[in-house]
Amino acid sequence: MGAISKLAARPWIWSYLGLLVVWLATVTFTGGKGGAEILSAALSFGTFTVIVGLGQMFVITTGPGNVDLSIPATIALSGSLAMKVMGGADAMLLVGLVVSLLCGVAVGGFNYALIRLLRIPPIIATLSSSFLVLSTAIAYGRGLKIKPPPMLADFTTARVFDIPVLALVVAGLAVAMSVLLNRTIYGRSVLAIGQNMRAAWLAGIPVERIRFLTYLLSAVLASLCGFVLAGFSGGASLNMGEEYLLASIAVVVIGGTSVAGGRANVPGIWGAALFMFLLVTMLNTFGASAGVRLIMTGLIIVAVITIAGGDKPQR
C-alpha cells in the first residue's frame, strides 16, 4: 500500500499511466497488431519533443511568466542554417553542428538581453524575438532544398533492435539534464528562483546569471532539435518548428512540472511526449477526422491538467 501511494505521489506517474491506457486502447482496436511498431514510432517522433521540452522545462521552472515562445523560430533558423553550411557534405557535419549551436547561443542571448534591458515579460520578449528570428530564417532559407549529409540522415534514422538510436542518445541527454537539475548548483538555483525569486536573491544566488543561462540552454536545445529534425526529415523547412510551440509546453505540464515554477520533472517529459504521439496515433487508428482529432487532442490536454490540478496558491 505504501509503495502505491508513494508512486501515486510522483508527478510523472500520470503521463506514463496515460500512455499505457492510450497504447492499450490502440492495440485492442487493432487486435494486437502493430503494438511494437507504434511504440517504436513514438520513440523516434517523441525524441524531438523531448529535446525542446527539456529546455522549456528549465525556463518554466524559473517562475510564473517564464515561457520560451521562440522555440519554433529557433528550430527553423538553426535547421536551415545548418543545412546550408553543410551543403550535404559529411565532412562539414561538425561545422554544421557548431553553427547550429551558435545560432542557439545567439537567439538565447538576444532573448535574455530583451528581458533584462527592456524589462519586459519573457513571453513578450521571446515572442518579439521569434518574429525577428523567423524572418531571418525566411529570408535566408527561401527555396532552400538541401539534403542533409548522409551521415546525419543515417544517424537520425538508425535503429538498434527496433529502438531508434536517437531516442537512446536523447534518453542520455534527459539523464544528464536530470543530473543538471537535481545535482548541480545551477539546477538547484533554478528551482530556488522558481520557488521565490526574492528569497533566492537574498540567499545570494546570482539570479540574473541563472536566468541568462536558462534562456541560453532552452535556445541551444531548440537549435539542437532543429539540427537533428532537419537530418531526420531530409532537409529543413520553414514551418518545421511550428508544432513544437504547443508540444514543448504541453509535455512540460503533462509531465508534472509545476507551471508556477520551482518544481521540475525530467522523466515526465519522456512520458508526456510519448503520450502525445500515441494519442494522435490512437485517433488515427480509430479513423477520426482531422477536426475530431484536433478536438480530442485539445480536450485531453485540458483534462490532464484539470485532473492533475493546479498549484495551491503560494503565500
Binding site: 504547443l246 505540464v253 475530431v292 478536438i295 485539445g298 480536450l299
Partner: peptide, 27 residues
Amino acid sequence: ALIHWRNLPSIVVTLGMSFVWLGVAVI
C-alpha cells in the same frame, strides 16, 4: 470557472482549447 475552480494555468488551458476551437471550426 474551470481555471478558477482548479487554479489552473490559463496558458495551458487556452493552448489546449485552441485545438478544440480549431477542430470544431474545421468540422
